[in-house]
Simulated assay, not measured.
Amino acid sequence: MKSPFEGNATAWSFVSKDKKETLIFYFEVLAKASKSISVIKFAGLDETAVYLDSDGNQFGGDELMNIGRFIPAVSVYTVQTDFTSHVWHLKQK
């Protein structure tokens, strides 16, 4: 996904053997004053399957692997801090 030795952010992905469930962990070390929009692409999913996130949103496996998901930015109304993280947990529908 993203190497911890090549930048300010890193990510790890875990996919079950049957490709029915995935976990992605994303970590950013230092906050940026003006963060650009970033995308993370999933890997190893079933292209023909539909996956649900924890909010019930549906995504195609091909969509997740080719287009990806936006990495949530900290709201402009909150204090941006160092050492932020985000977790995606998706299950096949």
Rank of each mutant, 00 (worst) to 15 (best):
K2G: 07
S3L: 08
S3C: 11
S3D: 14
S3H: 03
P4E: 08
P4R: 11
P4S: 12
P4H: 10
F5A: 14
F5W: 10
E6Y: 02
E6R: 06
N8D: 02
N8A: 03
N8R: 01
T10E: 09
A11K: 07
A11M: 08
A11Q: 09
A11H: 05
W12R: 14
W12A: 14
F14D: 05
F14Q: 11
F14C: 09
F14H: 09
V15C: 00
V15G: 05
S16P: 02
S16D: 08
K17R: 14
K17Q: 13
K17Y: 10
D18C: 08
D18S: 00
D18Q: 00
D18L: 01
K19G: 06
K19F: 02
K19A: 01
K20F: 00
K20A: 06
E21N: 12
E21C: 13
T22W: 00
T22C: 01
T22N: 01
L23T: 00
I24Q: 00
I24A: 01
F25W: 12
F25P: 02
F27T: 05
V29L: 13
V29H: 10
V29C: 08
V29R: 14
L30P: 04
A31D: 07
K32V: 14
K32Y: 13
K32D: 13
A33W: 07
S34A: 15
S34D: 15
S34P: 02
S34C: 12
K35E: 15
K35T: 12
S36C: 09
S38W: 01
V39T: 15
V39N: 13
V39W: 11
V39I: 14
V39L: 09
I40L: 01
K41S: 04
K41V: 02
F42W: 03
F42A: 06
A43Q: 14
A43I: 08
A43Y: 06
L45Q: 02
L45S: 00
D46P: 04
D46N: 15
E47F: 09
A49D: 01
A49H: 05
A49C: 07
A49P: 04
V50S: 06
V50P: 02
Y51Q: 00
Y51A: 02
L52F: 00
L52K: 07
D53P: 03
S54Y: 13
D55S: 15
G56V: 02
G56A: 08
N57D: 07
N57G: 01
N57H: 04
N57R: 13
Q58N: 07
F59S: 05
F59C: 07
F59N: 03
G60K: 06
G61K: 03
G61L: 03
G61H: 00
E63A: 03
E63P: 03
L64T: 01
L64H: 05
M65L: 02
N66D: 03
I67D: 14
I67H: 08
G68P: 06
G68N: 01
R69G: 04
R69N: 03
R69S: 08
R69H: 09
F70R: 12
I71T: 03
A73K: 15
A73D: 15
A73I: 14
A73C: 10
V74G: 00
S75T: 13
T81S: 12
T84D: 08
S85F: 13
S85A: 13
H86C: 08
H86A: 09
H86W: 10
V87Q: 12
V87M: 11
H89L: 15
L90V: 11
L90A: 02
L90T: 05
L90S: 04
K91P: 04
Q92C: 10
K93I: 10
K93L: 11
